[in-house]
Write a protein that binds this DNA or RNA. Sequence first.
RNA 1: GCCGAAGUGGCGGAACUGGCAGACGCGCACGACUCAAAAUCGUGUUCCUUCGGGAGUGUGGGUUCGAUUCCCACCUUCGGCACCA
Length: 819
Amino acid sequence: MSKKYNFEQVEAKWQPVWEAMDLYAAGHDPDKPDRYILDFFPYPSGSGLSVGHARNYVPTCVSARFMRMQGYNVLHPMGWDAFGLPAENYAITHNIHPRESTRLFCDTYRRQMKLLECSYDWAREINSTHPDYYRWTQWFFLLLHERGLAYQALGEQWWCPGCQTILANEQVENGRCWRCDHEVTKKALQQWYFKITEYADRLLADLDTIDWPEPIKLMQRNWIGRSEGAEVVFRAAGGDEIAVFTTRPDTLFGVTFLALAPEHPLVAKLTTAGRQTAVSDYIAQSRRKSDIDRQATNQAKTGVFTGSSAIHPLTGQPVPVWVADYVLMGYGSGAVMGVPGHDERDFAFARQHGLEAIEVITPDGRPQGVEACFSDYGVLINSGDYSGMDSQTAVSRITADLAAQGKGRQHVSYKLRDWLISRQRYWGAPIPIVHCQSCGAVPVPADQLPVELPDIDDFAPSGNGRSPLARAADWVNTPCPRCGQPAQRETDTMDGFACSSWYFLRFASPRYEDGPFDPAAVARWLPVDTYVGGAEHAVMHLLYARFWTKVMFDAGLISFTEPFTQLRNQGMLLSNVDGRKMSKSRGNVVTPDEVAAQYGTDALRGCVLFLGPFDAEVTWEETAVRGVARFLDRFWRLVGEVAQEAFHAKAQRRKESKEFERRRHELVQRLTHDMAQFRFNTAVAALMEHLNYLLAAWEAGEGSAAQWQEMLNVYTRLLAPIAPFISEEVWQAVLGQPGSVHQQSWPSFEAAKAAAAQVTVVVQVNGKVRDRIVVDVGEEEGRVKQTAVSSPKVQQAINGQAIHNIIIIPQKLVNIVAG
RNA sequence: GCCGAAGUGGCGGAACUGGCAGACGCGCACGACUCAAAAUCGUGUUCCUUCGGGAGUGUGGGUUCGAUUCCCACCUUCGGCACCA
């Protein structure tokens, strides 16, 4: 056996052996519990994987290996979320079909993941762009449609008359097209939506049932944005009812104006003849603002008076009705009651336009004046019969009284909007709908799925706001599935997030043909036990997947309501060059290929684990790989020496050691704990620390031959999930053990045997460490105190002062309070 | 602006429920091996010090026998949301 660890040789030796054994195939032993550990499936880009990706995939691989050794059947699959705009843009600029570029990118990703020896069950690989897959994405569209959860509505999008195309929000600068500087307009398009808002309350409530990082749950809660309040009705002169939503009905007597969103349907009706020009000018002006401008919170609060007023439901006084674009049409009812005294925005608006403010809430019921806005709860004044009430009481009283008079009701509003899924793009799953003159939007029957993407040559935008698919006339024109008359296919494709809203189910039975999944396989593996990915999907993928899961549950397809029982976010890996995320365009990418070529796969794996805590953002450091590589070399050398000596039977002279045994139990205990907790950095540190101990113990002649044999056997198994190659080589070639180390059981420990018989106890005087004493674990407290007090160093520190108290923490510390 | 996370040696980071701050690794210094270098091995490495000690986990307070850990205020960095009535 060679002195130096030769990773190239060892990797080349075991890789094909494992592949031939199908080592990572999901287990099917009926006597073992099942475990599903899943990575967010990636969008394969042309850049390939960086070491940053390794930080995502190596920890889950280690965890999967750990679970296998702990006696679980483990499902750990991988696939590709490959529909999307980048592939389409790449196709346009490189003149290559996205199907082809996607294939190439996936090949690269797969090769690199194999290089990292990620223990995926490759037989279950899926690809969201294959008709076999998106057939079922379309099937789910039909399911949602059938259940009234998919609907069409007119939506507004930015439109550049110069370029004849739809623009993304980010492509509109100061109301002009970023390319041709043409003034943009808005174009109303018929778009498909999924009714996620219908699930808002369940999406909110069920967060309490899942083991996810709190920050992610909080982001979802904020995104859903549930607010309890009241709808209050103001009656306009012509009889029209203006409903406003407020969370503060207690401030109702402070209303001095109403404000409608520019898009509010009543604006035109309420605008008087004399105000016509001013109002339409204002609406045109605010339509031109980009969402970004319109949402800037520090800008002036603009608006115009409609000329109309409405009657206050409680005071009967007229209140002027304004149009203001700080009011959003998409939230509440698109109209607000203006309470300048108690709402910051209304305060700013009133000040700008010379509107009055009435003080109706003060901290203690004594008037303070309305020079500033007071938006906290308090005590009501100037509020008729409600004066003197505290805010909380007034909120429910006023709401109830309004309801009794038919002028309002309790109401809950959400920030969450329905999910717009139409994309005017080629590279996506076609929406399975046929538009028929007489039958309307007709779903394609399930047995006619998939609606396959037609082959076209030109993926560039059409210029008429329609998908490039619209140009594939042969494909577009099709008989109506209902009446057989000539009809046209829907030409929009689905948002890529539709594909990722159910893929975790597909892995349970990836080749199943009679449905999106085999119910038995899903019942066995799902929900996902551990789901791992970046925090950037907190309110997109993770919300959509939860939504679809609940829909499937309601449809009786599955028996669980949450798809991911446990979620963990891995931290980002930043470049050491510029401290930013690695990306090809910044030229700061370090590839796993180059690192593995220089230091080996095991060292690379160990390094990304050791660099920092699993969930913390860390900076790449090549020196860290060297540290891990050295550790592996030292392990190799020690094992070599021990094996050689055993061969020469010299080991018989070594002496048995209790401490040696104890530390073995302690190590197994630490590793077991760290692995289960995703604390891989300290797991690696514990192995390093223990190796340092072993090297010293070997030199000192500590540990009998049998103890060393057992120690190396255990240590190699503990190392196996982290460094699969070196541990396999040691296990089989050096230790001569039968079978793969990766099919062995995880070592066990006894907590009692991991505990030391004697411990060092710190002796403090007034909280400062003055001495350390060694005592037996079971030592009686009085004697420990006595030993502590009698220490010369302690006596010196006490310096003759009276002892007031002695605090003793068993096996840890004695603190003598003197003075 | 609002919400959230985090601030520990020269660096990345340890410290389970309040109990030895700095594990482990990097880097650096010195030594061994070598003609020499690399690699490897060994020793040391928070700062200050009059060598007795003293200070120290972003800053300032507080609770406690005892605080990196708990509480209050503030500063900095990062992430999310951004007129949500």
